[in-house]
């Protein structure tokens, strides 16, 4: 129980630090959201600054923002006609979530199966190909692989839509693009984890007791062998969110990543804060789940 509480306290601290750092960074930077609009009169910008509390000392601003955020009010967008940030997030989060979820499932399916197969036949042709392909997978950036898939499957074969967001087929190429590097990493982790477990005594015992190979792999070996994958799952999900920034651009998906990049470029303070906090919460929750899964699979961790 202590383990779980410690992890949750960690997670909350992470979120708090993230919010604070982001807040300080965008507020202490030169230039403001209204400094680019040259047409605005000084009195107008003064009024705007007053309305959004930008005239107060930074610590007071921080206090006001945090109090509002904790009560669920993330402010309004400064560039999108006073739209509430929460509304923007609610409309743009689902595409990103779907994309990320499909990508992580694809990555796990491809990666784990490739890893298991190559661990069962180490140093064979299959192993060599899987591992060689995984190096390529890690080295192929999303913005190279994405256009490649787009050109081949959408422009040349016309099997799938080029870009946009609508049904499941729109998400197929983007999620494949997003999944590739993670599938490669999962494959290597799975392979090394399985190799370690397969050489241990209890596997030999189980084998000599006459456990069928399929059961041996799925029940006995997989529980230990998947540990490295599980521990990488948290960071992987964090990287998938950043990867989706690029993929959403390539495939024109109206997700949160595009909103984040746009709001950062526009200095849309509240929207930047809102998107960073949402991403932070998401990543922290995924890390927590990954930690807990690890603890369930490997009881030794819980003692710490």
């Amino acid at each position: 129980m202590r383990f779980f509480f410690a992890k949750i306290i960690y997670a909350v601290t992470v979120l708090f630090i993230l919010a604070t750092v982001t807040f300080l960074m965008i507020r202490l930077a030169p230039g403001g959201p209204f400094s680019q609009d040259q047409a605005l009169d000084v009195s107008v910008t003064d009024a705007l600054n007053k309305r959004y509390h930008f005239d107060k000392p930074i610590l007071t601003q921080y206090k006001i923002y945090m109090q509002n955020a904790l009560s669920g009010d993330l402010g309004v967008s400064l560039k999108q006609k006073n739209k509430p940030v929460s509304e923007i997030i609610v409309t743009h989060l689902p595409p990103s979530l779907f994309l990320g979820a499909i990508a992580i499932v694809l990555a796990l399916l491809i990666g784990c199966s490739a890893g298991i197969v190559s661990s069962l036949y180490p140093n064979s042709g299959v192993d060599y190909w899987c591992m060689g392909l995984s190096v390529i997978g890690i080295s192929l950036p999303a913005f190279v692989f994405g256009p490649l898939l787009q050109t081949f499957f959408a422009r040349y074969l016309h099997w799938l839509p080029v870009a946009g967001y609508g049904d499941i087929w729109h998400l197929f190429l983007p999620s494949l693009t997003l999944a590739l590097p993670f599938a490669s990493r999962f494959a290597r982790l799975m392979r090394s984890g399985m190799l370690e477990v397969l050489n241990q005594d209890f596997i030999r015992t189980a084998k000599s007791k006459g456990v069928r190979p399929f059961k041996l792999i799925t029940i006995h070996a997989l529980r230990g062998g998947i540990l490295p994958v599980v521990s990488y799952l948290g960071p992987a999900i964090a990287s998938i969110t950043t990867g989706s920034l690029v993929v959403e651009q390539i495939f024109a998906i109206p997700g949160l990543g595009r909103e984040f990049v746009q709001s950062a470029l526009n200095r849309d303070y509240f929207l930047v804060m809102g998107t960073v906090i949402v991403y932070g919460v998401f990543i922290v929750i995924c890390n927590l789940i990954s930690n807990f899964m690890y603890a369930v699979l490997d009881p030794r961790v819980r003692e710490y």
Partner: peptide, 10 residues
């Protein structure tokens, strides 16, 4: 656990 690339982008 921080999404650092976001901060770098900012």
């Amino acid at each position: 656990a921080l999404p650092f690339i976001f901060l770098v982008l900012l």
